[in-house]
Design a protein around this nucleic acid. Structure first.
Lengths: 253, 253
DNA sequence: AATCAAAATTTGTGATCACAAATTTGGCCG
DNA sequence: CGGCCAAATTTGTGATCACAAATTTTGATT
């Protein structure tokens, strides 16, 4: 639920947005193979809509770099290379470092408390083996952190970068993610925000992002290509009726 | 003309792209008043196309932050505030600084020579009072510089940032732009690239961007709003037939 | 003249169709 | 088995239509 100064911003219920959300979720979860061609009619057919909203959703995703458009006329899931990951690493490290630096200067006690709560929820989820839930909590922590900076444009750009790296972040599981550095760094960041210690906070987030993406870059083969990640494990299904997804959720199989 | 390793990339001739280019050019030149509502049918009618390509072009511009979409259903040219300009200043300073730093490490003699040529052309144009030509040369210099870094994603993000600030850059004319700091800094950057002196190059570009956008932020009124810029002066028309724009150029009046 | 509800118009959205370009298929010949 | 070309199919693009929501205009009433 999006809010702004207590005023509810009405959610965009257009089919276009729903298609966008579905594609975004599928990309982030790695449900498409990198390099896979996505035809408009396949997407429209799968989601049960016409071509029109699909085309507009695709335009947005292309603009955000989440999918790429071939010279001719087809779109496909981008293939990742070591160079591209290293470039994204440098950009993300810098921008997310900037966001945290500004956040440290402004963080209120309530905001710090919220971060602490999310961090402890993450600890609780970790080790349960639910990759999808784990990643969700990580995302929640990071964006709660960046939102404190109060810089909407910066936040939007960072979201775009997460969308580009998203399909490959599953590669961190299970090896990299079990390192205790993550939890330690999150606590260090929280402490630094509490103390308004911007340089320390920045260093911690830069190390976090730098290490994670360097690790992924290290998975590249000799040609510099990085293999696609496996889809995140689904959350446990609710007991009871399982067939139809809740109210109008457009999902890929 | 776009090239890549000697291979011509075929230009996208779709109507969608032409509409996008037209809107982008109009926005950059300040031909729309900030806050102005843009109806799909107005754009389609003006450019003589149907709604379909307009809708897709708009989606892309919205994703890039060049225009914004109201909650309900209309799109408009974003209004600029002091806070937003300062945020864009910080992001641009950082990312363009990063690009120049990488460029300094890689620049070849030929690339430096090209920068020097553009810089001298800019000096030639400067003082002729042709704002549009001046801005075009500035853009050419900056992107030739950033391209040397060889980081396509970074370049794409920077282009998006220029699109957001574009409608307001005319505010630099004629007062700010006549300062001799600009030409001096460009020469300093070129020299630093030649010497592979990354820190000096970064400092120079950061000062360039920081000063320009700080100047624009200083134009805000007490409420923090920044008045729209006047459209850039048109280039001198070629003599001869003046009515129809060259081959299929979709232009706004 | 100011107010406000009803009517008229405008506007974005989604579906559908026609069409050309790209891609795949299938068969033929080497 | 492999290369090549024409037919068949798929695919993205652009135009058009219907429709509901939003906006503007109108006109009656105070």
């Amino acid at each position: 639920m999006l809010h702004w100064m207590g005023t509810k911003i009405p959610a965009d219920t257009s089919l276009r947005s729903q298609v966008y959300d579905s594609l975004r979720a599928a990309l982030t979860a790695g449900r498409f193979t990198p390099g896979q061609k996505l035809s408009f009619r396949f997407i429209a057919g799968t989601l049960g809509v016409s071509l029109t909203p699909v085309r507009e959703a695709i335009r947005r995703l292309v603009a955000e770099g989440a999918i790429e458009m071939q010279a001719g006329r087809s779109v496909r899931v981008p293939l990742m290379t070591k160079d591209k990951i290293l470039e994204l690493r440098d950009i993300r490290r810098t921008l997310e470092g900037m966001a945290v630096e500004k956040a440290a200067a402004r963080a209120t006690a309530a905001q710090v408390a919220r971060l602490r709560r999310i961090a402890s929820e993450l600890v609780a989820v970790r080790g349960r083996g639910d990759t999808a839930a784990d990643r969700q909590k990580i995302r929640e922590f990071h964006f709660a952190l960046y939102a404190i900076a109060g810089q909407p444009t910066l936040l939007q750009i960072i979201e775009g970068l997460w969308l580009r790296t998203g399909p490959y972040m599953n590669l961190l599981y299970p090896d990299y993610i079990t390192s205790p550095r993550g939890p330690e760094r999150r606590l260090r960041i929280i402490k630094a925000l509490q103390d308004h210690d911007a340089p320390t906070a920045r260093r911690a987030i830069e190390a976090d992002i730098g290490d994670a993406l360097s690790y992924i870059a290290g998975l590249a083969d000799a040609a510099g290509n990085i293999a696609p990640a496996q889809p995140a494990a689904e959350r446990k299904r609710r007991r009871g009726r399982s067939s139809p997804p809740p109210s109008g959720a457009l999902v890929f199989p």
